[in-house]
Design a protein around this nucleic acid. Structure first.
Lengths: 179, 179
DNA sequence: AATTATTGTGCGTTATAGCGCACATTTAAT
DNA sequence: ATTAAATGTGCGCTATAACGCACAATAATT
């Protein structure tokens, strides 16, 4: 994810949210405590706001903070795509639904397979619950070893991955998307 | 959530992450492309970084962006309380957290036990995934039979319940609370 | 058509994010 | 003990985030 696309996502989301609520720059300025000049500049991508002001905007508009970093709904609507690999079997337990914004997979790693993944969008949380075998999960620059029955939770907007320590490992993977 | 408290969250997380990696301000400056003076000010809460710089920091440290905003364990622990019953064992897999607004239980029904429940708040969605045995789930005025491995999803703002058909049944219960 | 709000943008000013460099302290090496 | 390297803070400077106000444009009212 490049830095520059941030600005346009923030701009788009702010503009969309403001239009959806049928608010003028002046009205949102009063709601958020951020000057309308600044709001205009952010929408035109002429300014990269500080977290403090972005917080004031999110807070004043009663919208979530992470929503400013989400990709277009068109892209994130569906299910996550997994790489085609014979040694990693993915079974969808609960597909993504707009109301809950979670999806659940049962994943089987064969032959000590390791599966790495590049960062996802901001705010996405992954839950790993080991059903069979022994495995390790990578995030925060560390491998975390998990026995059967154990579980762990992490932000997946970073490099992460899974690897079976026993020959095969089965785990449940709950992915939560913000909104 | 007040604005000031997550400035300290950012400060704490940056400091902790830097210490964990045993990096100096100088070293992190080279990694992230952010001057060490600025990094120092952020750690001392003397400066509120822009989104762009915080991104450079997260990116350069290979850490998650969201982790800088990790909210403290919510006071409002939405955790559901279950009736005391010897024939229904509830094991919490993932406790409720404010960011995801889900909680996950592993529930064991013994001796053909039936457990009914009165309606919860509107918008709450329950997911049932049968691990062992055979059971049925009640909602929408009827019972739904589930074999091991099968799953079902329903709104729990209505009378609902579970019952083991085999002598014992084990299922996972994912509860999603609306934002 | 003329007037009056409303809305977004441009401008000048202030506040502060962010940088490079130097300084004082500590830590390690000689 | 002395030197040398490394680490965090302070200072001056520049870039820009953020503000208030005024202006030009459109939309609504008379």
């Amino acid at each position: 994810m490049k830095e520059s696309i941030f600005k346009s996502e923030i701009a788009n989301h702010l503009k969309a949210e403001r239009k959806r609520k049928k608010l003028s720059l002046d009205a949102t300025a009063k709601l958020t405590g951020v000057s309308k000049a600044m709001l205009g500049q952010i929408e035109r991508e002429e300014s990269s706001p500080t977290i403090a002001t972005l917080w004031k905007i999110a807070s004043g508009l009663n919208t979530s903070f992470s929503a400013f970093f989400a990709n277009e709904p068109a892209l994130q609507s569906g299910e996550r795509v997994f790489p085609e690999d014979e040694r990693m079997k993915v079974n969808t337990i609960f597909p993504f639904q707009q109301d809950t914004r979670i999806e659940v997979f049962e994943i089987t790693l064969l032959d000590h397979h390791q599966q790495m993944s590049s960062p996802h969008d901001i705010g996405i949380v992954e839950h790993v619950h080991v059903i069979h075998g022994k495995m390790k999960v990578y995030f925060d620059q560390q491998w975390h070893v998990l026995e059967a029955g154990e579980r762990i939770r992490f932000y997946s907007d970073q490099s992460h991955g899974y690897e079976a320590i026993s020959e095969t490992a089965v785990f449940h993977n709950i992915v939560s998307y913000p909104k």
